[in-house]
Design a protein around this nucleic acid. Structure first.
Lengths: 122, 122
DNA sequence: ATCAGTGTACTATTTAACTATAACACTAAT
DNA sequence: ATTAGTGTTATAGTTAAATAGTACACTGAT
């Protein structure tokens, strides 16, 4: 196995984002168990310590709960997940607009660009 | 001085993006001289070698031309700059759509999100 | 009590980015 | 020829991310 990573960003950050996305889009539901650190490490082809760090940071963000000896689970707190979805959406949009404006593109150019590319990618 | 950097991405990549943006939005014109490596290093508070690396990579991308003994200049090739603008725009949009779809958002949610946030930020 | 499965912790090593410092090489002007 | 300003190169050291390997600690079931 071994998924692909962007060599310019820390793997643990990419994994945090990946898992958060899976939860936000409903691929992983509240209370669902994540793979064990060893299992997930093998699956994505990284070291156990890296996964351990990912789970630890996700717990700080209150996105997962760790039960020692049992595993790591998506939080049961549905409110938290609703907020997370909104936070991630807003952050992504904010960053996109900032980057595009930094390059001198107008809001209209952004909207058009998304409509043109979006029809194929959807 | 010392501008701010995102601690999670290499400084040299952030600078490449920053300079490219300045060129694409017309803040730096074709043929315009960039600051010398030493000057720019002091300005942004990093090491000379880091700026040297930035200029070297920008030259590989054919965005700037280096004239040894004289300095580093934005390319005179206007076609290249036009292409660059389009490339950066498309890349940004593609990445945005991918990230948003990964989180389960629809094209309509993207468009609405941008229209709502854009009015303030514009 | 034992065992399999879980997260946690520690030490040592490697790699890439960045830094500090210094020297080198080219160009234009004097 | 010299000088000031430019990019380039090289060595050495620091830091953070990631790795490998190992051991520890907790839980639930047998």
């Amino acid at each position: 196995m071994g998924l692909e990573f962007d060599a310019n960003k820390p793997i643990y950050l990419q994994l945090i984002h990946r898992i958060s996305s899976e939860i936000v889009r409903g691929d992983k539901r509240e209370g669902e168990k994540l793979p064990s650190v060893r299992e997930y490490a093998v699956e994505v082809g990284v070291n156990t310590n890296t996964i351990s760090r990912v789970y630890r940071e996700l717990e700080l963000l209150q996105i997962v709960t760790t039960k020692r000896g049992q595993g790591t689970f998506v939080t049961e707190d549905v409110n938290r997940l609703t907020r997370l979805r909104e936070e991630m959406k807003q952050e992504q949009i904010k960053q996109f607009i900032m980057d595009m404006q930094e390059m001198g593109f107008s809001i209209n150019e952004m909207l058009e660009g998304i409509m043109n590319n979006g029809s194929e990618g959807q």
